[in-house]
Design a protein around this nucleic acid. Sequence first.
RNA 1: GGGGGAAUGCCCGAGUGGUUAAUGGGGACGGGCUGUAAACCCGUUGGCUUUGCCUACGCAGGUUCAAAUCCUGCUUCCCCCA
Length: 390
Amino acid sequence: MREVLAGTVTCHTEEELARKLARGNPLRVKLGVDPSSADLHLGHAVQLRFLRRMQDLGHQAVLIIGEATAMVGDPSGKDKTRPQLSRDDVRRNADTYLAQAALVLDMERLEIVPNSRWFDGMGFMDAVRLGASMTVARMLERDTFATRYKRGAPIGIHEFIYPLMQARDSVEVRADMEIGGTDQTFNLLVGRDLMRDAGLEPQVCVTLPILTGLDGVQKMSKSLGNAIGLTDSPRDMFGKAMSVPDAQMAEWFHLVAGLAPERVDELLAGSAREAKGALARRVVELYHGSQAGQLAAEEFDRIFRDKGLPDDIPESDLPGELVGDDGVWVVKALTHLELAPSSSAARRLIREGGVRVDGEKVGDEQRRLERGANCLLQVGKRRFHRVRVP
RNA sequence: GGGGGAAUGCCCGAGUGGUUAAUGGGGACGGGCUGUAAACCCGUUGGCUUUGCCUACGCAGGUUCAAAUCCUGCUUCCCCCA
């Protein structure tokens, strides 16, 4: 029991969990994921890691791929309506999603179920019946709906359906436990109601903490640009982890590092710089192996402490059409390489002294790279690109 | 079904006929400081080979020498009444 609940926020209810565990059968632990975006980040990993722990404790993990629900869009924690995705988007996302989940879960012992399996077959009247199991008043109790309603922001009817669909999944897979972030509490609890209605023993609902993003303020989310993706390169992971605010370190250690609590206390008691280095290294190790962690740490020191160069600077040849008699205009090179979004922006960067060629600041917006040159472009402190001019 | 209000740049939000890519804040980016932290300081933040030109204030038209600002229609959202 203690092992199961370590690191969780709430559990509805602990008594029921104890009862289920006491029977000695493996629990069916459900996690629903909406492949609304293809990339998983450390925030998702908090839940995946919990699921993995349950697997290691001998329980059956059930991963629901929300093919149907993703097309509706989960209103949780959103202050506006989410876009609805097409089936193709969803399918495509689901594949990459699973590949990334494999970084954490034991895929051999994972039950993967798309919820389109039952929703595709449902008729309109079935959906109406599903709707009858919930009241508007209860929906409006929800924080996200309440605030949106009060503020006069739109709420689509389909958004009321979402929790019911998620709950229906629990009935279909006969979940013993469903896990989710704390923002999922309501959705998880609806699952209990529907299971009871269906004559099943209600699932236990376990909520997990929501990881704060790199900005230290908002929850980690790709669209907010404050996320570390599970497939980020070791260097990016390390660098991003180093930029986590100090105040967030303890949280990150607990939620993403998976280190022994004594070790965490020890690190936090020491120098902040060292502790964060250990955290960053740990993150890389988890997803790229211990050697990568070591290398990333060394490289980081070299680039940022010793102001050196990274190992693998991307290289490319500039296309011939950019080359004039006097070579390639730096501004064009920057936009072509996507080191700047537009040539106006590239000019600005030059003006601000943020562009270097072979380590030297470019002072002239008209600066060219000579024909046949092979030089190192740098934008800001961390973006490098080596180019050959034909 | 009737009445009223709103729509501005990445976001929030000023601006209600004329020195204007459009006050302010947030975010982001660049520079300085540093531990790629925080705090702080400075700068930038529509596009274009940029003394200039082009495109922008929901969409489409119109009035005017001149419109984000006025008029008409449309779209979307909100509120009140039914």
